[in-house]
């Protein structure tokens, strides 16, 4: 039988398992590193903050180190089967996702949304793409002498604009999180209330309930 990592641990009654310990660790580490990147970027970039904090070399060093480390949580997470399965879910757009994007009442529970809705999928791919672009342009700026001057200027230009885009997307991400305590509980404890899952991710909730029932029917072995 095909292993089902998400159902090996049992959730409390009325709860569904949504994120494994590894996945939550990946989310937290990535978030922490991104937070350090943003804070140090603000100090390097915003005049009054640059003046107030000073210490430009130290701040730059922290920014470069935390930026270079950004891919590490993802790469380590790839060792986890559950994480890889979720990456696949984030990558693929089903017909429901297109409908979700067009829908005016997408949160009504009408659509059988999968484990991630289309907005979460776009957020994940945008942040991944943006991180790669920031790494590439950051590399050009860090080792400035290895490239033509025009590349250096171009890399600075791209790095600065994408930084703004990332900032806006992350503000949106945090805004949605503040309005969704159950989703936050999922990232904190790994489990979410089944009622919430049926409302926000009906397709996934049904799939998950069926999987747990199948697990109950056949003893592990």
């Amino acid at each position: 039988m095909r292993p089902r990592p998400e159902t090996r641990r049992r959730a409390a009654p009325g709860q569904l398992l949504r994120a494994t310990l590894t996945e939550r660790w990946v989310h937290r580490s990535f978030g922490l590193l991104m937070g350090v990147c943003i804070a140090t970027a603000a100090i390097l970039y915003i005049g009054p903050l640059s003046i107030a904090v000073g210490r430009r070399s130290t701040v730059e060093w922290v920014h470069v180190i935390s930026g270079a480390a950004l891919p590490l949580p993802i790469l380590i997470g790839l060792a986890s089967r559950a994480f890889r399965a979720d990456l696949r879910r984030l990558n693929r757009f089903s017909p429901v996702d297109w409908e979700w994007l067009r829908s005016k009442n997408r949160r009504s529970g009408r659509l059988p949304v999968g484990k991630f809705n289309a907005g979460q999928k776009l957020n994940a791919s945008f942040v991944t793409g943006a991180t790669l672009v920031m790494l590439g342009t950051g590399l050009i700026m860090r080792f400035a002498n290895a490239w033509p001057v025009r590349w250096r200027t171009g890399a600075t230009f791209v790095h600065d604009w994408i930084a703004y885009a990332i900032g806006i997307v992350i503000i949106g991400h945090l805004f949605f999180a503040t309005r969704d305590p159950e989703a936050r509980q999922g990232m904190r404890t790994g489990a979410v209330p089944e009622a919430w899952a049926r409302r926000e991710h009906r397709g996934w909730a049904e799939e998950q309930v069926a999987a747990e029932a199948a697990d109950d029917a056949s003893p592990p072995g």
Partner: peptide
């Protein structure tokens, strides 16, 4: 379904490269 995530990701990397070249 379609691998939209991968397309968004590759599209951004492509745009980033164009931005480096035409940014100045």
């Amino acid at each position: 379904g379609a691998p939209v995530g991968r397309r968004v990701l590759l599209g951004m990397v492509g745009l980033g490269a164009l931005g480096v070249v035409f940014g100045p």
